[in-house]
Amino acid sequence: MTEREGLSIENLTIAFAQGRKEAISNLDLHVRPGEAVGLVGESGSGKSLTARAALGLLPRHARVGGRITLAGQSVLDLSPAQLRHIRGSGIAMIFQDPMSSLNPVTRVGAAIAQVIRSHERVARSTALKRAVALMDRVGIRDAATRAASYPHEFSGGMRQRIMIAMALAAHPRMLLADEPTTALDVIVQDGILKLLDQLRRDERMGLLLVSHDLAVVGSLCDRIAVMYAGQIVEEGPAAEVLMRPRMPYTVGLLASARRPKTLARLASIPGTPPPLGERPASCRFAARCPLAAPQCRAGAIPLVEVGNGHHARCVRTGDIGLLDRETFTLKAREAVHG
């Protein structure tokens, strides 16, 4: 691979101790410096696990195969001390729930300063000054005063801004954001998304945005990868994936996010994803797919190129036009002819 810069995940497989329960199977994902990539999927699809793997944050009993490199350095081979060093300065992460990610008894200014001082030898007062500047940068008004407040004195959106300030404290080249706005109101979410977008442009920082919401990811990202049951099932430029999806699951996700008033019911994907350990070797979405055919259950389905930089894991990708984009059902014509 030539991706000497940025984050590169190659052939990542994560399994948990008992049996052959693979949570992630042969996953490839690249985030270049300054690029924003969205990783989309339902709960349990393995999207958060993928992000955690990139930080070396996997539980001890996880068995990991494949390669993860950050600026050419193999993350999986690092010692705990080396990991500590790249966490923060090389790659940083923000989580869904900012309250449980902040120490409730540390003033937020001091918490940010702590991050700075764990990566650089600077005086406490200098670190605190920089912490205040960072808080100002992420849009916290009256930062000098607010730095002395505790996490519980902030709203959810402001706490997430503090998390972002902490993540930025050691100038990471890559930021992983795991559902950063899911717990927030729409107006607050809008502010956080705009902030993330501005920061990655200003700092030329790579951004991996993990979310279940295609609209959130689409509003921010250059490329989108869609995960289903531990695999990437579609990946490509954001506009391509959103406008010309080539995998039925993506079509279903897009349909269920639309609210057309012409319909009596929202489109939804019937059924639930297969649980860990019951994932078929063939197409994992076949059981819920309106286009499923015998060849979908015949064997492993590769991720194939379907357009310029656009890949889909589907043998019926050529028939995607038979799907109604609004209702995620087969178009009437097809239904009639069986």
Binding site: Q189, A215, G218, S219, A239, L242, M243, R258
Partner: peptide, 22 residues
């Protein structure tokens, strides 16, 4: 306006690319 919506994205993409699917 704050709700990110696919329809808004579609409109934005349509204005920048030549042949949108929808």
């Amino acid at each position: 306006e704050a709700v990110p919506s696919l329809d808004k994205l579609a409109a934005r993409t349509a204005s920048s690319s030549e042949s949108p699917a929808q």
